[in-house]
């Protein structure tokens, strides 16, 4: 359980430090697989837990990376991430965020003790890193990936309260993400066709 969480942290750092889009997509996929396995590691082989875990694994680990790969292929953009904040600074900030989360989350009241004391801080770090990727990267595709990481964070946080939250909520979050990714895929396609680029800097032209 803790191993999986540490792997999750490492994957987050990889996302911050990596410069090629295909590797980002792959890492987001690995994260999805990890998150799919996490509930089973945390709560054992129960029917509901299996359902949540396997559906998460299928959607986050397989469908999303595939959709993103396809978007990348169709957009035919350069594979450079084009950061607004340098990779080193991003990594440093990531470490700071992790530290801050460890401090912050200690005081969050939860209905029950989470299966691992690392779970909630890691979930928060994932949320923050996801948002950071959206803010600090230029390409719209990377921003979509950032959104996925953000979703992963929320999903991980949901695990902490899984026995207390109805299945419907988990399913709802997953469906939300799925729809969002589909919408982002369509939007990316249109941005690319209109501006001949996926760089969000061109979007400034849309301002009236």
């Amino acid at each position: 359980m803790d191993t999986a969480l540490v792997l999750l942290i490492l994957s987050l750092f990889w996302l911050l430090g990596s410069s090629s889009i295909p590797s980002l997509i792959r890492v987001v996929g690995y994260q999805g697989v990890l998150l799919g396995v996490l509930p089973i590691l945390a709560y054992g082989f129960e029917r509901e837990v299996l359902l949540v875990g396997l559906s998460g694994l299928a959607v986050k680990g397989l469908i999303f990376p595939w959709l993103m790969q396809r978007a990348l292929r169709e957009a035919r953009v350069t594979r450079e991430v084009e950061p607004l904040v340098s990779y080193n600074l991003s990594l440093l900030l990531g470490v700071l965020v992790l530290g801050a989360s460890l401090v912050f989350t200690a005081e969050i009241p939860l209905p029950a003790a989470p299966p691992s004391h690392l779970l909630v801080p890691v979930a928060f770090t994932a949320v923050a890193v996801g948002l950071f990727l959206v803010v600090a990267r230029k390409k719209a595709l990377v921003q979509a990936l950032g959104y996925l990481v953000f979703e992963n964070g929320i999903y991980a946080f949901g695990l902490a309260v899984l026995p207390h939250a109805p299945l419907v909520i988990e399913a709802g979050i997953l469906l939300d993400a799925l729809v969002a990714v589909l919408v982002m895929g369509i939007t990316l396609f249109h941005i690319n066709r209109t501006f001949d680029s996926l760089s969000t800097e061109r979007l400034v032209q849309l301002k009236d």
Binding site: L84, F104, A128, L131, F132, V134, V135, A136, R137, K138, A140, Q143, T200, E201, L203, V204, Q205, L206, K207
Partner: peptide, 21 residues
């Protein structure tokens, strides 16, 4: 506030979130 940079829009959200926390 509306300058067309998507990154800054999300930054507003992030700042609000951090502020609330």
């Amino acid at each position: 506030l509306q300058h067309g940079r998507v990154q800054f829009y999300v930054l507003y959200v992030l700042v609000t979130l951090v502020g609330l926390l």
